[in-house]
Simulated assay, not measured.
Amino acid sequence: MASPIHLQIKSMYTDFSPKEQAIADYILENPSKVSHSSISDLAAELGIADSTFFQFTKTLGFSGFKDFKLALLKQENDLSAVTIHENIQKNDSELVMAQKVFDSNIKTLTDTKKLLNEEDLNAAVKIISASRRLYFFGVGGSEIVATDAYHKFLRSPIPVGHSTDYHIQLMEASLLTEADCAIVISHSGKSKETIHIANAAKKSGAKVIVVTSQANSPLAKLGDVVFISISEEIEFRSEALASRIAQLSIIDSLYVILMFHNRESAQETITKVREVILGLKENKTD
């Protein structure tokens, strides 16, 4: 199933030119009007040529304006609900502020869920299952997601690795082989450090799975499989922090699918981990 248009636009937004961003903003803010207007009327409203709007629809992957408009009409109900409780107001109570944060997180998960497809999930899990080693890479805020993934996949039957230090991550990536897999996480997909890591992993022959919020980012173009997380930015909290929740859920999904596909060996690993942790708890005296 095709991704909702507003999610396509958001995942590609940072790569648009200023004129394309103006068109994108207009579509996101006026989906119903766009779906019921002619290309000439829209172009006149935006002060651009018909051909500019036409080319924008081609950039989104449509054959032209008619194809774009038909898809938009089908998705109009979804698009009308793009803006929900995102902005915290000065007079909001503490409870309302918290509820709006929860609402934003829920929307982040819902939007990201819509972008998932079975082909990518199957491909990623097959790569991971066939890997001799699995390494997680992330810098800055994305390192938190990579660490969480490492902690989780330690319970899987696949040997895993992760370092919090960028230079060590870069060295680890360079030492991977064709039998290994790298999962590289970056919200923007434009971090030079993360791109260096992904390039090193690709050069070593390893398969690369990318988790990012930008579908057309340099990092996404390096991935054998790419997962897109969608998030909304609200005041006092960056979009990158919101995307972390979606990225964690993507990693959780890969972990659960992997464990179900390898139930017997996965159960052995889980049992070993539980036994050693339980031993620590039983020996605790304070």
Results as ranks from 00 to 15, higher is better:
A2N: 12
I5Y: 07
I9L: 09
S11P: 05
S11Y: 02
Y13P: 01
P18A: 03
E20Y: 09
I23A: 10
A24D: 00
L28S: 04
L28C: 01
S38G: 15
L42D: 00
L42H: 07
G47K: 03
F56H: 05
T57C: 12
S63M: 12
A71W: 00
A81C: 06
I84S: 14
H85A: 14
S93Q: 03
E94K: 13
L95C: 02
Q99D: 12
V101L: 13
F102T: 11
S104K: 12
S104D: 06
T108H: 03
T112Y: 04
K114V: 08
N117T: 09
N122Q: 15
A124F: 05
A130Y: 05
A130N: 13
S131E: 08
R133L: 11
R133A: 06
R133F: 13
V139D: 01
G140Y: 04
S142M: 08
A146V: 09
A146E: 02
A146F: 06
T147G: 10
P159Q: 06
D165H: 11
Y166Q: 02
M171R: 13
E172Q: 11
E172C: 00
S174T: 06
A179G: 04
A182W: 02
I183R: 04
G189L: 02
G189T: 04
K192D: 13
K192E: 15
H196C: 09
A198I: 02
S204Y: 04
G205E: 02
K207A: 15
V208H: 01
S213T: 00
S213Y: 02
D224W: 00
D224N: 13
F227I: 03
I228P: 04
I228Y: 06
I230G: 01
S231L: 01
R237C: 10
S238N: 07
I245W: 01
Q247V: 01
L248R: 03
I251N: 00
V256D: 09
I257W: 03
L258Y: 15
E268T: 13
T269N: 13
T269S: 15
V273G: 08
E275S: 11
V276W: 09
K281T: 12
K284R: 12
D286N: 14
